[in-house]
Design a protein around this nucleic acid. Structure first.
Lengths: 104, 104
DNA sequence: GTTACACATAAGCACATACTTATGAGTCGT
DNA sequence: ACGACTCATAAGTATGTGCTTATGTGTAAC
């Protein structure tokens, strides 16, 4: 999936909220509906879009569809952002701190 | 500017192309129109959106408006992406390499 | 087999958004 | 002062997008 589409996919607040929910762990489509005031088809459509963008992967188990974040899908976004981080001196230290934390 | 709006702003391919053009250096609104098949008001509107998102800053000089990338504006996007980089082990090393290069 | 369930797809609708042309506001050159 | 210019704003329009209800497909329980 190219960076061309990923921004459009992420521009929807509901889809970002779904990703945030999935960042806490795998969940089924009905699990995800909790806390969202949307119908089942709406959730299904959002998940299809996220899946199409490669941001989410699906694991089928009987009649349940388990969704989880696919970290690889964020690569285009990361690559795009890196272009502008090149002249981003004031934030580099924060980024270093972040990496230092992750090493521990 | 919150992350809530930044994705919507970046979801437009023309605006991303404008940013890419500006990453090569400052430019006026008319300079930017070269290579884009859009009218002057369309460009002006895009620049207003980018400015509103804090991704671009404006320097007024007579009747010319010089635009440049504002690196600070990318902070919300970076912060958002960091959440998903947390479980993104395969890419961390690349990021470290990037920082190492920038130190030199 | 039949019913209930989990999810996907189809069709239609309401709103958002990016475009256009027309015009306004301010600046420079003569 | 006037005309040419750079850019911003207004108003209208066409397309895109996210939602709904209705229906289809497949699975589990009885």
């Amino acid at each position: 999936m190219s960076e061309i589409e990923i921004f459009k996919v992420l521009s929807d607040p509901t889809r970002r909220a779904i990703l945030e929910r999935l960042s806490a762990g795998e969940a089924t489509a009905t699990d995800l509906r909790e806390g969202f005031a949307i119908t089942q088809p709406a959730m299904s459509q959002h998940l299809a879009v996220l899946r199409g963008a490669g941001l989410v992967s699906e694991r089928r188990e009987g009649r349940y569809a388990h969704y989880r974040v696919d970290p690889e899908g964020f690569a285009p976004l990361h690559a795009w952002l890196a272009r502008y981080r090149a002249f981003w001196p004031s934030r580099i230290d924060n980024l270093k701190d972040l990496l230092r934390e992750m090493d521990q």
